[in-house]
Amino acid sequence: MATPRTRPVEDSISKVGNELAVGEDLAFQRRWWRFETTIWILFALILAADLSGIFGRGPLAKASAKTADGTMKLDYERVLRYETPDVMTIHFGPNAIQNGRIELWVSESVIKPLGNQRIIPQPKSSILDGDGILYTWPAASHPNSVSFALAPSAPGSQKFTVRLESTGDTITRHVWVMP
């Protein structure tokens, strides 16, 4: 039978008042309290950043872009969140309508990484066109706007492009998807 493994007991724990083995280390504890304060400040900064929209869904996240003549205006969020619903809206001016319809080319990235769920209103047709999709809506008069309901499926930096076929106006933007 194997001998049980043993080790002599050492009086290794530091004592208070030379009698009570506590193992107190005030120098370490003070370091920890400083670390704790730093973490609390960091937590407060994270909350402030979240409220301001730096992490998405807040005032600083909102952005818009428009073409030089204002034919197309894009309302979007610079920062989105992974698998969290969001809406990107495109407003069209009168020049956007050609032959009673609006044709908009949208890069594939709006469908895949940015996770387009549905388009409001539904386009009359959607045609695969290069590395994007060409949507067509019948339009009689302006103002007209189209919304894309997004739910990003991949975190990180994502680039997308929208192009108005009637004028050739293009808007390209980079957005950040928070994990």
Partner: peptide, 21 residues
């Protein structure tokens, strides 16, 4: 282990509160 669990701290010693702790 110290960072994860902390260390014991003396709160009261011989009639004196240890105010830092």
């Amino acid at each position: 282990g110290r960072w994860m669990d902390g260390l014991p701290l003396v709160l009261l010693r011989d009639g004196q509160w240890q105010l830092d702790a």
